[in-house]
């Protein structure tokens, strides 16, 4: 009895230091401006990428996101050489890759995955080549893996503005995009301007990729686009829920990745990509409706049996 009492009292005594420790854990990194900026960019990109990435997943075009991300490289090099806004060069180059893929598909029997693999590698190759021959000041490693720790306050605002605009557009065109991505033939038969919708969607995806690249780089941005959204896919039953949950998970992944990177002195882009994977793995195992551990086939069998009976 006495020992329990002393234990519980010691527990009470321990509390303030624990709370202080937790508070310290979260607040200490915030005293650095570069961490604050990184968190702002990370959260905006973390919310935006999965929302737009949802459209890639439901159209079974996740790899197209990866293609566009790599295909921005020539545009970045040329824009840097001509001294124009890098994002504009990246956008043109990324969109161009989607047109070329479409063109190859229409002109031949080549299947889309093969066309994507070809375009992805050739655009990327061209980009790396241009970066060296045009003697740009761009750092290849920063482009590939991102350098979120070097972003400025301006970058934070810009990412925030892009995220806001794209999210508002998704909201405004939600029902048309839902119809188009679910049943493109049905949408076209009804007279929806499917070509325009598709072009708008591709533009949104490309802009989102460019915004996300700042956080995690060309190679890893697809993780932020796809990972949180497929984790959400295992949790919900409607598209808008997938976007909301995906956005929240994306922000969590960005923040936890950054803190891990700060405390363990790890590169931040890869840390975020791994955080995304951990979140996905957790939902895959523990999703209440579709989790491997929470929804054992045996249990599921009984449920469906009672449902039908």
């Amino acid at each position: 009895m006495g020992s329990t009492a002393s234990q519980s009292s010691s527990f009470v005594d321990d509390r303030p230091p624990l709370a202080t420790f937790m508070l310290d854990f979260f607040l200490a990194p915030l005293s650095y401006e570069f961490i604050r900026n990184a968190l702002v960019v990370g959260v905006f990109a973390g919310v935006l990428c999965p929302v737009v990435g949802t459209y890639l997943i439901v159209q079974r075009m996740a790899l197209l996101g990866d293609v566009i991300a790599h295909a921005v490289m020539p545009g970045l090099a040329i824009a840097n050489f001509l001294n124009i806004n890098l994002a504009i060069g990246a956008f043109i180059s990324g969109m161009l890759s989607t047109f070329v893929i479409q063109w190859i598909r229409q002109q031949s029997r080549v299947k889309v995955d093969a066309a994507m693999a070809l375009i992805f590698s050739s655009f990327f190759g061209l980009g790396v080549m241009l970066l060296t021959t045009l003697r740009t000041q761009l750092d290849l490693e920063d482009l590939l893996f991102g350098n979120i720790l070097s972003v400025t306050v301006g970058d934070g605002w810009r990412t925030g503005a892009i995220a806001l605009v794209i999210l508002v557009l998704v909201k405004l065109f939600y029902k048309e995009l839902l119809f188009f991505t679910f049943d493109p033939l049905g949408a076209q038969a009804m007279g929806l301007p499917v070509q325009v919708i598709n072009l708008g969607l591709m533009s949104g995806i490309t802009i989102t990729l460019i915004a996300g690249m700042q956080a995690v780089g060309v190679i890893l941005v697809i993780a932020l686009m796809i990972g949180p959204a497929i984790a959400a896919y295992l949790l919900v039953k409607e598209l808008h829920q997938m976007m909301i949950v995906g956005g929240i998970l994306g922000a969590i992944a960005s923040v936890s990745g950054l803190y891990t990177s700060y405390y363990y002195d790890l590169p931040s882009g890869p840390a975020i990509a791994i955080a995304v994977f951990v979140i996905f793995l957790l939902t895959l195992l523990f999703s209440p409706t579709q989790g491997i551990l929470t929804n054992h086939p045996f249990k599921r069998g009984i449920e469906s049996h009672t449902k039908s009976g």
Partner: peptide, 28 residues
């Protein structure tokens, strides 16, 4: 015009409820 595509054209794993599929009819 109303069009019912072949079942194989549709991804039945798409995250959408029956209600919202029918609601698409009112999109335009």
């Amino acid at each position: 015009i109303a069009y019912v595509p072949q079942r194989s054209h549709i991804d039945w794993d798409y995250p959408i409820t029956a209600w919202n599929v029918v609601m698409m009819a009112q999109t335009r």
